[in-house]
Design a protein around this nucleic acid. Sequence first.
DNA 1: ACACCCGGGACTACCCGTTCAT
DNA 2: ATGAACGGGTAGTCCCGGGTGT
Lengths: 212, 212, 212, 212
Amino acid sequence: MSTHVEKKTSSGGKINKTDIKPDQIPPRDRIVTTASELFRMHGIRGIGVDAIAEAAQTNKMTLYRHFGSKDELICESLRRISCKADGLWKELAEKFPDDPAAQLDGWVEMRSRCLGSEPEGCDLANAAIELKDPDHPAHAVIEKFMIDQRNQLVAACRNAGIEQAESLADTLCLLLEGARVSRQASGEHGPSHQFRQACEAVIASFAKRSPS
Amino acid sequence: MSTHVEKKTSSGGKINKTDIKPDQIPPRDRIVTTASELFRMHGIRGIGVDAIAEAAQTNKMTLYRHFGSKDELICESLRRISCKADGLWKELAEKFPDDPAAQLDGWVEMRSRCLGSEPEGCDLANAAIELKDPDHPAHAVIEKFMIDQRNQLVAACRNAGIEQAESLADTLCLLLEGARVSRQASGEHGPSHQFRQACEAVIASFAKRSPS
Amino acid sequence: MSTHVEKKTSSGGKINKTDIKPDQIPPRDRIVTTASELFRMHGIRGIGVDAIAEAAQTNKMTLYRHFGSKDELICESLRRISCKADGLWKELAEKFPDDPAAQLDGWVEMRSRCLGSEPEGCDLANAAIELKDPDHPAHAVIEKFMIDQRNQLVAACRNAGIEQAESLADTLCLLLEGARVSRQASGEHGPSHQFRQACEAVIASFAKRSPS
Amino acid sequence: MSTHVEKKTSSGGKINKTDIKPDQIPPRDRIVTTASELFRMHGIRGIGVDAIAEAAQTNKMTLYRHFGSKDELICESLRRISCKADGLWKELAEKFPDDPAAQLDGWVEMRSRCLGSEPEGCDLANAAIELKDPDHPAHAVIEKFMIDQRNQLVAACRNAGIEQAESLADTLCLLLEGARVSRQASGEHGPSHQFRQACEAVIASFAKRSPS
DNA sequence: ACACCCGGGACTACCCGTTCAT
DNA sequence: ATGAACGGGTAGTCCCGGGTGT
């Protein structure tokens, strides 16, 4: 497992056009970012702190001064990811102000596109599956994230005038998680391709029941 | 066995032929069964061949004579599980002969009950998530299983008179996988509790569109 | 540990620093001590490195890092035991200072008591019997030990004023080894019970011949 | 176990003494003899049934038909050896008829010579040391042998007019066993060279106390 | 920032006692 | 009756993991 740490984000994400040094960003951030990426690629158990430190262009000791244990790093990594996911709703709100239904549709659209571009599925859900031990501190992070996601979805549904917002939100959660895991297990031509249509159908079905 | 200190033959002597034999079942089966269970409990990466051999009341060498590698054992274990899952459809067919709609409902019912009793979700899907390496031989097994499952679901839908059987089957797949992973990530009070209602609603929705 | 299923770090998390630490003593010492005990109980050939490592609360690799081979471990174990036996003479010298005859009697007394409390006999002698291969490195350790033991016995005899110190020492050696092996072959009611009286008689006999 | 002893005669049913074949002796005997020798050379645990069968110019199956288990073979081997040892006393009785004292001296002489020619010591005692498990059937054989040996020594002593025959016999036993084990642990120049003199001195000492 | 330690997982080669198919 | 196969086991190797002291 050599370094091979080239940032593939020249196309999207962090644009660092000004920095010649890749390490202008503080080590802590570099470590978390690198860790997240490697966790996603190889699984949490599949990558070691050694490789993370090396890929982050630092050393194990610095890593341990910042995090104390791999478990802490895992948690921090998951926390960051969940923050980034939160930002997504703000984007939608900005993109479709005063149009909750469009926000909901936008969510489906966005998630649907992610299914193609991010075949690794949901990092948080994957972590939950990989970390069987229910006492692992990551589970708290995961659970909180899941609740937040659902709440935001519920809010979006409610704003969109859906009466049974909770039910719809739950259903959409199931479809999303299902599509993500199905993407990993069955490939891109499996049931996950049905995600968008299923969402739209379900939303339509719930909207019908609700007096708009 | 803590220290293997009890020898059986040259030092232990006696062994009346009626020695405790908890293992009428051949070692190979014991190993696969035990492995499946331990994989489910601790994850594939979370359990070692040594522990499997010990739990199967045999030793590492016998394990390796039968399987050659842990990867082979993983594949065999997944194959068994997928066989068992196949049997499930036969059960439904026997239980509701000549009533395809009831079979479909029975599937929902059965899956719904499993969600409560088997919090570890789908072993195959979990394995797909844990085994990131796309070249891992297990992926072939998993993919085949997923296709089979989907096909059987498609057939059931079609038999039940659904016109867009593929779409419904895919949607149900998504809901099921989603519910299973959500069960692990969010606990039993998360979106997974919505599985049954969602399935029923979706089935009803598809049935409506199909002129039976 | 039956299944090693309890992981410590990545899945177990928490580990408060005050984790149960029954092992202030370094692994190397634990291994040697444990090995000595298990060798004594089950014979050198009767116990495996795996069982030793497990009983020493470590693993095979650590064992091999410290010793390189089971044979080395055997040698080290025997060396330790022979050191402990050396300390015995110091005890006697401290207990009976300036009274060589009492030291000799004390030796008989002590050995006699050991016959009852340590039915496994002399580890070094047993090892010599079990390890038939004369090229085994343990034989050097054993031989050195035997010579040392005899020399100390000779010195004690000489200090006690015995003229034919070598002969007496050899005879006492024979009686001791004989008693120890007889203890194992014939039980505690066999000839070994005669050890003390035989020693005393022999000592008296040699003392008589020596004009003090 | 079914066929006991096959007929070894090459022609008809007569016992043909003109054996050209070296394996005129029945397989069972060959096996036991070979086993005894190999056990003595490599230790009981140090040799396998495979090697025994091969050395006895037969195969494992035949061995197992005759003995059922290695443990049985061990026992039989030890039984034979103990028989041979019994014969030794008869020899002495024939050699020195009506002279018990000479028989005792002869015993010492003979044992002393054996110490030089048989460096492996007493097979029975060695077996007792190697087979730590007290439940091993061999221990019964060993114990019986030891008792017999002691009894015969006691009888010889008593016949020689020793009053404290038991004490002397026990002492001689200790010296013999001690010499044998010392021979293995310390080599031929160790305390075992003192065996003869020690025996003679002890006998003389006991004889003195007894009114001849 | 390096080297080190302990731990452990996967795997190999070989042996032993026993049974079975031939 | 003979060799192959089986179930069990042990010594030993390699590599990587997390964590610590320097």
